[in-house]
């Protein structure tokens, strides 16, 4: 009787059954509508940019793992997310060679050097984006207008710029609502912003679709709802106060919410679990900090948009937050820091 060798392992012997790769996959599914809308509004250019970003991220991860004699970790889907996020934050007519470089940088410097998934200190896609912003500031602020005629068939010459060569910008460029506001004080209609009838990075235009993706993840408990909620409410309240003080200088809170990369950043990037604090209170502080920085940079800074920097700084601050904000352990008095 009982012929088999027994197995012993540590308690608990049952698991909830949600694994990291399923979470990652779900994030990818949640981003799909955003991706589809990006292609719908910006056409084949956007598709090329996003696909290139994904390919370069996954390829870099694979190659680096092979180089360091590790098992390839592309099956955990995190590189795919990095690629998609990077693609979604780039202008639709961003040259493919730069996109590719950004993907390599994202995964290599943003993640791999820190030891891979789980150890990256910053959101890898944003590290790549920040690199591209600093390296090619002109290309990354050249936008394509949305819903151009023939966008599904004609590829912009700047997208196909020869590697290491300066892209030639054709005449289809448009300004983002934020730069239009910052430099020309032109307000874009809020409903246009919400629906995404504007130009901008491939994935940031339609706030409604991004929110849908976020709600999906929150419903599946694969995202910390406190992060987007605290970021967005901070931005809303702060800009609301400014708007009440002087509505001629400061933009309306709704404009602040729906313009630029705020939605995309708050829903898909600031919520990167690795770079955000772990406690509920810490997460709220993190969100507040990001929201505050977004408002400060947008309103007083030199740049029209600051979501990327705000999130990266939030990531940098996370270890401090985790250090100081600790849940009060059962049966102890106030936490000592």
């Amino acid at each position: 009787m009982f012929s088999k060798t027994l197995h012993i392992s540590t308690s608990p012997h049952i698991r909830k059954g949600v694994s990291t790769d399923t979470i990652m996959q779900n994030v990818v599914w949640a981003m799909m509508p955003v991706l589809i809308f990006a292609v719908f509004s910006f056409g084949i250019n956007a598709l090329l940019v996003i696909v290139t970003a994904v390919v370069s991220s996954v390829l870099t991860e694979h190659v680096l793992c092979k180089w360091s004699n590790k098992e390839s970790t592309i099956s955990d889907w995190s590189a795919v997310i990095t690629g998609i996020l990077l693609g979604l934050t780039l202008p639709p007519i961003f040259p493919l060679w730069m996109t590719f470089l950004g993907g390599v940088f994202s995964v290599a410097i943003g993640k791999f050097v820190f030891g891979g998934l789980g150890y990256n200190l910053f959101n890898p896609a944003l590290v790549g984006r920040a690199f591209l912003q600093a390296a090619f500031p002109v290309a990354i602020t050249t936008w394509q207008s949305a819903f151009l005629e023939g966008r599904f068939f004609s590829i912009s010459s700047s997208v196909l710029a020869f590697p290491f060569a300066e892209p030639k910008v054709d005449s289809i460029s448009g300004a983002t609502p934020l730069s239009a506001f910052k430099f020309d004080h032109v307000m874009t209609d809020s409903s246009d912003l919400a629906l995404g009838l504007i130009s901008g990075s491939t994935g940031e235009t339609s706030a409604v679709i991004i929110i849908l993706g976020g709600i999906y993840l929150i419903a599946r408990k694969m995202m910390n709802w406190r992060i987007p909620v605290s970021i967005l409410s901070t931005v809303f309240v702060l800009s609301g106060i400014l708007y009440l003080i002087d509505d001629t200088i400061y933009p309306s809170p709704l404009f602040m919410l729906f313009s630029g990369g705020l939605m995309l950043g708050a829903v898909f990037m600031a919520t990167d679990m690795v770079g955000s604090p772990i406690t509920p209170l810490g997460v709220v502080i993190y969100g507040f900090f990001i929201g505050l920085l977004v408002v400060v940079i947008r309103v007083w800074g030199g740049l029209p948009e600051g979501v990327m920097y705000a999130i990266l700084l939030g990531n940098a601050l996370t270890p401090q937050i985790d250090n100081f904000i600790r849940p009060r352990v059962y049966g102890t008095k106030k936490t000592k820091s």
Binding site: T5, L6, H7, I8, S9, T10
Partner: peptide, 8 residues
Amino acid sequence: VRAEYEGL
């Protein structure tokens, strides 16, 4: 070996 250990 009486039982196969799985874990750390």
